[in-house]
């Protein structure tokens, strides 16, 4: 068992309206097999016992699929390891004596609730605007009635993998949500059953995205690199293409 000593510099903010600041904590003998969130658990046990308020942070499945956790660690959303969320990041990725700056996702559309917990309901509102196929329960045909080639299904799956964690927004210099929305639009518009509503869906989702206060895409591609599911920027391109169609349709009719 290998252990390291580290300093964490964490963003503390009491609530949505309070002013936040950074606080330093020293952690000794951290087992390198620990996950990053388990390290925060250890920090919290210590804080609790010493009469301080523990750090609020979101996490749920702790296996990289629910998308609940997320923090910017030393300037990198979900930390230094590619294609993982912070719950899958392990302390062996850090060195003895290192200082870890831990910050929340920073975006106007993701206001802080407490410490590094942010409100990502903006994503849900975008989804409510049109991120679905309008099929009612029980009104469907046989599952094999629509044939879909394997590569289309795979490409749709590539996009559908999005866990909605918000790392793309955190990574984007403009705090843009284009990779999230692009992935959703792309997933549904690739499949034949999703094509029917495609044009309307894009228009509605993009309108909602703009309303939420996300920045716009300037093709910096940071999102894709920080995405724990490595969603490709080609899905943004697909959305852009569909948006032209949607606009022409809404202008010309």
């Amino acid at each position: 068992m290998k252990t390291i000593n580290i300093t964490v510099k964490v963003w503390r903010q009491e609530n949505a309206v309070a002013k936040g600041h950074f606080e330093d904590y020293k952690l000794t003998e951290i087992d390198t097999d620990m996950s990053f969130l388990e390290m925060l658990d250890v920090l919290n046990e210590g804080l609790t016992l010493s009469g301080e308020l523990p750090l609020a942070f979101d996490s749920d499945c702790r296996e990289g699929i629910c998308g609940m956790c997320g923090a910017v660690v030393n300037g990198e959303p979900h930390g230094p390891v590619k294609a993982v969320t912070i719950c899958q990041l392990h302390m062996r990725s850090f060195t003895d004596g290192q200082t870890l700056v831990i910050e929340s996702w920073r975006s106007k559309a993701f206001p802080v609730i407490k410490d590094i917990v942010v409100d990502r309901s903006a994503f849900d509102r975008i989804m409510m605007a049109g991120g679905y196929i309008s099929v009612k329960t029980g009104t469907t045909t046989d599952a094999n009635a629509n044939l879909i080639t394997s590569d289309i299904a795979e490409e749709a799956m590539d996009a559908a993998q999005c866990i909605g964690c918000g790392a793309c927004v955190a990574a984007c210099p403009n705090a843009s949500a284009m990779l999230f929305v692009g992935a959703k639009v792309s997933h549904l518009s690739l499949l034949p059953q999703g094509k029917i509503e495609c044009v309307e869906r894009v228009r509605k989702m993009v309108t909602q995205m703009d309303k939420e206060g996300f920045g716009s895409c300037s093709n910096e591609y940071e999102c894709s690199v920080s995405c724990p599911k490595e969603i490709n920027i080609s899905h943004i391109a697909r959305m852009n293409r569909k948006m032209i169609k949607a606009t022409i349709k809404s202008v010309v009719g």
């Binding site: 030393n74 300037g75 990198e76 210099p173 403009n174 705090a175 920045g215 940071e222």
Partner: peptide, 29 residues
Amino acid sequence: LVIENRKARPIAYKKTPSTKKRSIATRIM
């Protein structure tokens, strides 16, 4: 757009996200 984009992140990161992907050309547009 630049103004809107600046507004989209009212509090800046302490540690600016390290440049993993963006080329110099992109950053200085």
